[in-house]
Design a protein around this nucleic acid. Structure first.
Length: 281
DNA sequence: TCATCACCTGGAGA
DNA sequence: ATCTCCAGGTGAT
């Protein structure tokens, strides 16, 4: 914990990065891959496994990042509005499957799908006599049939998840090598998996693979860019965001928000969702 | 190359 | 109650 240890769980968990978290009484319980995380106030983190990476990116130089992204005045205001909001570094496989499941769905539905996947295929861990199910590994999900996945409520995403699991088990997708490679090629590699387009790839890269220049562009961020930055990001000539437009838009985004654009996105996204009184978990 | 459209499912609002 | 609409997108025409 290098600087600014303040982490606001309520802001961070309720900012659309994770789906398998619950507040029970005064503690937060969350699933991260095969580990169960329990967080108490004042901030203390318990992990059921020893190998926990720094889940809240405590190794980031937060002062530097926040000061850098605050060059944009709106982002600067949101940094003050949501002190302690963090970008999370979550388990890559869980992140990958979670966001594939997020396609054209709602937070509540996504959460339901993932809970069922955990219950059906995950390991059981016990904490204070309570049972929790962790997120299944790729090896474990290799045995899942399309029928199994449909029974978890995945719908048309079932075939995407099957392909995605195969891609990992065959070595076509290797998270640790993606983590080491540059943003652009990692993005292209992820997009070779059916069911992963720009938005989902960016979420995986930002929330699990340390690509802080990722800036997931969905209906919300599009709305934000149009609403608050109409003359900087003149994206919408036509209706749909084509590949070409997406590329040039992302370039402009990094040019404007800087190398930590992903953090900017997280603050702006949180702001706009709250403004529209959208529910989280 | 670009714009439309269907897609599983379930929760919310009419 | 029953229905319609739509949700943090993507792939196929």
């Amino acid at each position: 914990m290098r600087n600014n240890p303040t982490i606001d769980l309520n802001f961070t968990i309720n900012s659309g990065q994770v789906f398998l978290w619950n507040k029970i009484e005064d503690r937060w319980f969350g699933v991260n891959g095969d580990e169960l995380l329990v967080i108490t106030e004042p901030f203390q983190i318990y992990s059921s496994s020893k190998s926990a990476r720094l889940f809240f990116r405590q190794d980031d130089n937060l002062n530097k990042i926040l000061s850098d992204i605050s060059r944009d005045s709106l982002v600067g205001a949101t940094v003050k509005q949501f002190p302690g909001l963090r970008v999370i570094r979550q388990d890559p496989f869980q992140c990958y499957i979670s966001f594939i499941c997020s396609s054209n769905s709602s937070i509540q539905n996504i959460k339901n799908m993932l809970i069922r996947l955990c219950q059906k295929f995950g390991n059981k861990v016990e904490f204070e006599n309570q049972q929790f199910s962790t997120f299944p590994s790729a090896e474990r999900l290799a045995n899942a049939t399309t029928r199994d996945l449909l029974s978890c409520g995945l719908g048309f995403r079932a075939k995407y998840v099957r392909d995605a699991v195969k891609a990992v088990n065959s070595g076509k997708i290797e998270f640790e090598s993606l983590r080491k490679t540059d943003y652009k090629s990692a993005l292209e590699t992820l997009k070779t998996v059916r069911g992963i387009g720009n938005k989902i790839a960016d979420c995986i890269l930002l929330f699990s693979l340390d690509k802080l220049e990722s800036f997931p562009i969905d209906r919300w961020t599009q709305r934000i860019l149009q609403k608050y930055y109409p003359n900087i990001f003149d994206i919408m000539h036509g209706k749909s965001l084509t590949e070409k437009k997406h590329n040039s838009l992302h370039e402009k985004i990094v040019e404007h928000f800087g190398p930590y654009a992903g953090y900017s996105q997280q603050f702006l996204f949180k702001m706009e969702r709250d403004l529209n009184k959208k529910n989280w978990l």
